[in-house]
């Protein structure tokens, strides 16, 4: 029995279903990831208002009130800040958790990547 004969035993609806499934699933493979947020998300909030939501995978440098925030290689840092202590600049690169600049009321958080288990959950 040849393959052609086997195919001859299928109904029109069978073939329609096959084409439909292939098209839908094939298209979903391509398009679903495009519309999903990428791995880590960098949220930048100023005065408790969300200002930016950026994928951590895309390199970018953006000014945020008194700060300059750089996203590069899956990490975020504050390059420069106009506040006196510059604590946020000293914190350096992070790929999880948060950088907070109190004087400028800026909260930069990385979402979607869990914090390392050995770290602390809070600081007093």
């Amino acid at each position: 029995m040849r393959i052609a004969e086997l195919i001859g035993c299928t109904t029109l609806c069978d073939r329609l279903l096959l084409v439909l499934l292939l098209v839908i699933t094939g298209a979903s493979i391509v398009f679903v990831p495009l519309y999903l947020p990428h791995g880590g998300q960098v949220r930048i909030e100023v005065r408790n208002k969300l200002l930016y939501k950026l994928p951590i995978s895309e390199d970018k440098t953006i000014p945020v009130v008194g700060l300059t925030v750089e996203i590069k290689g899956g990490k975020v840092r504050v390059v420069d800040a106009d506040c006196p202590g510059k604590i946020c600049v000293k914190q350096g690169w992070i790929d999880s958790g948060a950088i907070i600049c109190l004087p400028n009321r800026v909260v930069i958080t990385v979402e979607g990547t869990p914090a390392p288990p050995k770290g602390v959950d809070a600081t007093t």
Binding site: N48, L102, V107, A122
Partner: peptide, 12 residues
């Protein structure tokens, strides 16, 4: 985290 009461508040 939000900035409130002159400090950083983090709820986990």
């Amino acid at each position: 985290s939000e900035i409130m009461m002159d400090t950083v508040i983090t709820l986990t």
